[in-house]
């Protein structure tokens, strides 16, 4: 009974998520919006690559960063999007308090809403990989691809994505007007810190530990290693496949655990501060 009730609630909030995400425009406009962003990112990366293509190693490096950028769509769409759900529910529809006091609870609700974000993130990632494969020459040798580690990596990465999303939900609950800025800042910070666009080795030494505690740094490195057959970080390249996979799973699990605790505390803090129905009329 409890499982089917939870499933119904998840399905209902996912349905609401789809209405919110897709219903603001007619289907043609929505379709254009859906493909415009990944296409723009692909072309921007291609232009960057073209501007610096004089190095012989750039082909492999570009492929690595391209794949990371493709999967970073999940961070942009799911993680930041989950934080935005709180912000919009409180400020725009003013329904956050009604959802919060319903027996469904915010965790289930946000979980359902994140499902649609996962679908949109998947479409974005798939489109980027397709554009890369057919237009930009970002291809991989299937003989070098390791499906099982790759599948494990993807599952761990999705779990970390969801966990990070809940943390940003908690942050958005506690903050009011500044939540918008913080969410945008997180999106940018993760892009720079997680080795999406350049190797972590190029970061200042004092900043690298921050990169290494973020699960996405490990996730992207694993995706490169197990999909393309090579990574981008010199230090991580010294790890065997098993070590890299083990470290990734451990970091993702630890991060998810910390995220769960952080969400619980942020939820309590929001309730203590009375932020759940506090609109700022920004």
């Amino acid at each position: 009974m409890a499982v089917s009730e939870t499933f119904t609630r998840l399905r209902t909030s996912a349905w609401l998520g789809w209405q919110v995400e897709s219903n603001w425009a007619d289907p043609v406009v929505f379709f254009i919006y859906l493909i415009a962003r990944p296409l723009a990112v692909s072309l921007t990366l291609a232009a960057m690559y073209a501007a610096t293509r004089d190095s012989a190693t750039h082909g492999a490096a570009f492929a690595g960063f391209y794949v990371a950028n493709a999967f970073h769509a999940y961070v942009n769409t799911v993680v930041v999007g989950m934080g935005w759900v709180i912000f919009e529910e409180r400020e725009e529809s003013e329904m956050l308090k009604y959802v919060y006091v319903s027996p469904m609870g915010l965790v289930t609700y946000i979980g359902g809403r994140s499902f649609v974000r996962f679908v949109l993130g998947s479409i974005s990632a798939a489109l980027m990989l397709l554009v890369g494969w057919f237009l930009l020459g970002v291809r991989w040798d299937f003989a070098l691809t390791r499906p099982l580690p790759l599948a494990l990596t993807i599952v761990a990465g999705f779990a970390a994505t969801l966990a990070a999303g809940y943390v940003l939900c908690g942050v958005a609950m506690v903050l009011t007007r500044s939540a918008m800025t913080v969410l945008e800042g997180c999106m940018l910070g993760l892009y720079l810190l997680c080795g999406v666009i350049f190797p972590v080795d190029l970061m200042p030494v004092w900043l690298r530990p921050v990169s290494y505690v973020l699960p996405f740094t490990w996730w992207y490195e694993c995706l490169r290693r197990f999909l393309l057959g090579h990574g981008s970080s010199a230090w991580m390249s010294t790890l065997t496949d098993a070590q890299l996979l083990g470290a990734t799973l451990a970091v993702c699990a630890a991060f998810s655990l910390v995220a769960a605790l952080a969400y619980r505390e942020l939820d309590r803090l929001a309730r203590r501060l009375g932020r759940l129905d506090q609109t700022t009329m920004f």
Partner: peptide, 22 residues
Amino acid sequence: ENSGYGILTVRECLWMFSQFYG
């Protein structure tokens, strides 16, 4: 208040909350 999910119909909103409450 002026609360409500603008993109839903009245009936959809009520149905959705009935599902939230099981």
